[in-house]
Design a protein around this nucleic acid. Sequence first.
RNA 1: GCCGGGGUGGCGAAAUCGGUAAACGCAGGGGACUUAAAAUCCCCCGGGCGAAAGCCCUUGCGGGUUCAAGUCCCGCCCCCGGCACCA
Length: 863
Amino acid sequence: MANHGAEAANQDHTPGHTSGHTRDHTPDSDDTRDRYDPSALEALWQSRWDEHGTNRFTLDEFRSAEDPYYNLMMFPYPSAEGLHVGNIYAFTGADVHGRYHRLRGREVFEPIGFDAFGIHSENFALKVGLHPMDLIPKNVANFTRQLRRIGGMFDWDHTVDTTTPEYYRWTQWLFLQLFKGGLAEQKEAPVNWCPSCMTVLANEQVISGLCERCDSAVEQRRIAQWFFRITDFAQRLLDNLDDLDWSETTKKAQSNWIGRSEGAFLRFPMADEPSADTGSGKADSGMTSPANRAETVDVFTTRPDTIFGATYMVLSPEHPLVDRVTLPEHRPEIDAYRKQASAMDLVARQKTDKTKTGVFTGGHCVNPATGERIPIWIADYVLMEYGTGAIMAVPGHDQRDFEFATKFELPIPRVVAGPDDTADTPLEEAYVGPGRLVNSGPFDGLPIDEAIAKVTAWLDEKGAGEKTINYRLHDWCISRQRYWGPPIPIIHCARCGAVPVPEEDLPVVLPRVEDFKPDDSGISPLARVEEWYRTECPDCGGEAERETDVSDTFLDSAWYFLRYPSTDIADAPFDPAITRRWLPVDTYIGGNEHAVLHLLYARFVTMALHDLGHLDFEEPFTRFRAHGLIIREGAKMSKSKGNVVVPDPIIEEYGADTFRLYLMFLGPFEEGGDYRDLGIQGPFGFLKRLWETVVDDLDPDPEAAPDPDVERKLHQTIEQVTRQLPELQYNTSIAAMMEYLNAVRSGGRTPVRAEVEPLVVLVAPFAPHIAEELWSRLGHAESLWDAAPWPDFDPEKMAEDTITLAVQVNGKVRGTVELPAGASQETALAAARDEPNVARHLAEVELRRVIHVPDRLLNLVVG
RNA sequence: GCCGGGGUGGCGAAAUCGGUAAACGCAGGGGACUUAAAAUCCCCCGGGCGAAAGCCCUUGCGGGUUCAAGUCCCGCCCCCGGCACCA
């Protein structure tokens, strides 16, 4: 838009300099210049803020900030479709928070960036036949345009794009730190393989057996992978949750994901098998070699107290001991079963309602409690990923084992008796309730809690096991056999093994490869680029090859918040002094879909960097709030339904201020809301009315005294908004401001400046452009955002002098009376008796009791 | 099955410590202004009975505590999100 005059007038913007821009910002003719024209006005202020560096920090400012506030939101993945309402909703909610603190005088750093590596981008590039290196910059440019348009308080001098070598250089550096710290290791492991995406997936990316991206059934494969040892931190990650100011739902999701369970690790010695028919059946028949005798089947159980009822063992079909324990005559059956299990996709494998299957191996263990030989089976209801991949089956007290034992006619003894049971009460199903041990030798009669401790201690003494803690959490597999990610900075040398790339050689630049389509080989496309992967060993100088896998996108986003304030620093990932001043992040706002993925990894990386001496804190986000989800007209938005809200035309028509205000008005920010197309009229009308109030209708006397009733309402409104904004209670804050403006304009009265100016500031976090414009029109030379003029409220001015007291008779409202605030019970009662309808209900009954809640109600109990 | 979060007018939603249920907004109805429309402004707007005054009912369902329950307790039902053969 054209506003050359205004721009020129503002070139030397300094405090005290009244530029006169309050009137000359629209070069149009006189009759249109005072109309509320959001698009023009928003463009004007955005360019002014940009010129003045209103939202940008210099390196010096980072180093010297006295009251820093790091306001973070989850950076977007720049898709080709552009920003969707969900993004804008989240960013606006976070921006409102940042702007509020800015108006309170904090130095608010609010960065944004782009999480642009990963399978999403790569698959889309493949689909449209473009190279991601060409596609991503376009998407980033489009996102940047949109992000600027919505008026976020972003520091555009400190953005990150995870796909630039300047950024991923440090992602690779991070990998090396973890590698050197012993927290990264390569191991062959069964992994989730998506046959459609042709890549390995993290457990978190598998949603009930399906690929979270393409819904293909996930298969199992064994590939050498790089892992981060996040499980080493499981207990700390869990313990620290107690002290984090995070949304409860997010903390709960993390603690479920970590999945701590207390129990025991137990060793069941393998029994040697009677060759042919020696028939003795005793463990030490002399046929057992010493090596064999040492072999055990190890299990994890949360119910060591039930060990006397363990009548068989079950190994997962993938368990490494299966071959050892299987007797030759059972071999064909076992092999067939294992083949069937491995062919089965994880959906079918994890279906819980299917009937139990399994095969006897022919092998046996000795139950260390009873000394009895018990058979070893394999069954797919035992998962290799959890615990040791083997269980002791206690059919009497575990429903899964009960079903299995019933089907295969294995014994089902009772070892726990409930309050109404005896040791011999038959079991119709597994009994898992409270009770006391039975049929358990010396432990009979003990309640479960006590028995768990005593039995475990007893087994420990016998060397048969010990108390332990098991976690559901797995190590983080970060290898991806794909193209679009940072190469893992490792060089494989036949002589020296896996050698880290020297830090001074970083970044290992991702080469431009035209043929980046993944294939079914399980090998990265980079393995096709010989001139790239052939290199020398940094240690011995011999021929060597680069690691051709790239790292998981979640690694890029696990540390980006450390980079933002230090993007001016070229020779370190984050500057120690700046980091000390600005981190940990004060408030982080984002979607709960990242509760266990991104947020847990970011915590792990921070904790690891802390332990390795790079950071002096171990939790990255002091406060985290999960925002809700936006639906439309009661239905989930999706591309396939064609009911997605497209933000650009709405912003075009109503302006970013209205759109922001409307999104925040839909419902509680932390619960989301229902976007109804017509609803935007309310917030639009409000801003328009506010505009007219200041621009057209204001009392010309700037010193005019406020109306006492309006002033009282003003202080009540300031109080409410000041209390609710930092708690993200945006919808009710907006309602309060609307109510206040209604009071200011009621009966078409002429508003005075003292009534209106504070409202302009209150509304500013939601509608920053119109607020700045009105602030300027009210005669202020300094930007609203630099002046930090958050209004104070005066409790005395808030107080009502007369109140309406509800009068109840027997709990039912029969009338109201007007009274001076703080009126005594006697006064209230007298007034109530004078109220005709109340008097009617008091006639001919006896007043038995009076309940007086001062200034609220009077309840007269009669009978 | 387990763990969260919910269920309030036609709709989105409000409601400190238990104290006048439905603030604010949308949609709808009526009116003013206008040649007309848009925009704007004013009034009405949970249900039932009543001419009115007023009375009765109403926060998913059923009980309970209390002078008083959307709010607290017990038992259910339904919706949304997460986890799920986790030993």
